[in-house]
Simulated assay, not measured.
Amino acid sequence: MSEEKPETTRERLRQEEWKKDPSGSIHGGGLPDFIGNLGWKGTGILILVLISGFIIYTAIYR
């Protein structure tokens, strides 16, 4: 008996919910689905890019 990873369980539940009400996701899943698809490494890189962009912006337009 093997346990599923939380990501796998979450994706399976999301797919089942989408099958029940496909019109509920007409505009996409939004931020939770985007971050969930990136994984923790992709999310970390995205956060670093946003922070470094903000720092560079404030340094240039000070």
Rank of each mutant, 00 (worst) to 15 (best):
S2W: 04
S2F: 05
E3V: 05
E3M: 06
E3R: 09
E3Q: 14
E3F: 03
E4G: 10
E4L: 15
E4V: 14
K5A: 11
P6A: 15
P6Q: 14
P6Y: 15
P6V: 15
P6I: 12
E7Q: 07
E7Y: 02
T8W: 01
T8K: 10
T8E: 14
T8I: 03
T8Q: 11
T8L: 03
T9V: 13
T9Q: 15
R10A: 15
E11D: 10
E11F: 09
E11Y: 07
R12M: 12
R12Y: 05
R12I: 09
L13N: 15
R14S: 05
R14N: 05
Q15H: 14
Q15A: 15
Q15S: 11
E16R: 08
E16H: 06
W18P: 00
W18G: 03
W18C: 03
W18Y: 11
K19S: 02
K19V: 08
K19F: 06
K19N: 07
K20W: 03
D21M: 13
S23V: 03
S23I: 09
S23C: 04
S23N: 10
G24A: 14
S25I: 09
I26C: 09
H27Q: 07
H27T: 12
H27M: 09
G28K: 01
G28H: 03
G28N: 01
G29C: 01
G29H: 05
G29S: 08
G29Q: 07
G30C: 05
G30R: 11
L31D: 02
P32E: 12
D33R: 09
F34R: 01
I35N: 00
G36D: 00
N37D: 04
L38K: 01
L38S: 00
G39W: 01
W40P: 07
W40D: 11
K41W: 03
K41L: 12
K41Q: 11
K41E: 08
G42T: 00
G42D: 00
T43F: 00
T43N: 03
G44Q: 08
G44W: 08
G44L: 12
G44F: 08
I45R: 02
L46D: 04
L46T: 02
I47C: 03
I47R: 01
L48G: 11
L48I: 10
L48S: 12
L48N: 04
V49T: 09
V49S: 10
V49F: 07
L50D: 06
L50S: 09
S52W: 08
F54W: 06
I55E: 06
I56L: 13
I56K: 10
Y57W: 07
Y57T: 08
Y57H: 15
A59S: 13
A59Q: 12
A59T: 12
A59F: 12
Y61R: 14
Y61E: 13
R62T: 02
R62F: 02
R62L: 04
R62Y: 02
